[in-house]
Amino acid sequence: MSEGRGALKLLLKNRLTLAGAAVVLALALVALAAPWLAPNPAQALGRPDMGNQFRPPGPGNWLGTDDLGRDLLSRIIYGTRISLHMGTLVILLAMAIGVPLGAIAGYAGGVADEVVMRLTDVFLGFPPLLLALAVASLLGPGLANALVAIAITWWPWYTRLVRAQVLSLRETAFVEAARSLGAGHGRIVFRHLLPNSLSPVIVQASMDVGYAILTAAALSFIGLGAQPPAPEWGLMVATGRKYFMQYWWYATFPGLAVFVTVLAFNLFGDGLRDVLDPRTRRQ
């Protein structure tokens, strides 16, 4: 009885993880095939169609049209490209800053470790989103600035993660062996320590993509990220909000796209962590 229930639990849990993975995969395909999938690529990229404004969802415009008569479905499909792009680039940039710093802190120890760790304390001392908001507002609106702003708030997590990994590996036999063979610090860090600390970093990164997408959409919603006529989801919700009480579909569908995308990444990441990290596996 309890074993059957355990298997059912695993299946159910895996099912959610699988669903997440499937949606992520589908989104990647949609992003790649956007020009073929979108009913109206020109409108997706911004060409207005006056006289066709605020069409409710129906044949021809399955998700309706916006204030400039553009097909919302096409724009949401193209928006997948922007969101996935932002999500991955933010995480890559955060890793590019965080991973080397973590390796230095963990390997060198002493003063370097203390300085780097206190630096992460300072950055993590901000509530999430607030620092990104402040940085983005002072850098000025734009996707590239939003990207930098979010990455600046996110790197300390990678630093801490890598540092912990390197600390635990530093005194192991294979590192000792490399050292006794005369390997220099650079070689030990980059050839031995980092490759062996990367798998938890990659798991973490795959979970963080959803967060990065959500934050990018929030910045765009406030007006700090993508600028019109970009088919960015957060920006579309912000514009659609002005007409929301009459034309509910305009803000509803782009927001739903954000929610489904982030949910998929989180479900996938949550399951991935359970599978790969036995310590957090549910009892």
């Binding site: 959500l214 954000v258 949910l263 989180n266």
Partner: peptide
């Protein structure tokens, strides 16, 4: 809850 865009 953690995936929800609050503005939406």
């Amino acid at each position: 809850g953690v995936s929800m865009p609050l503005f939406w």
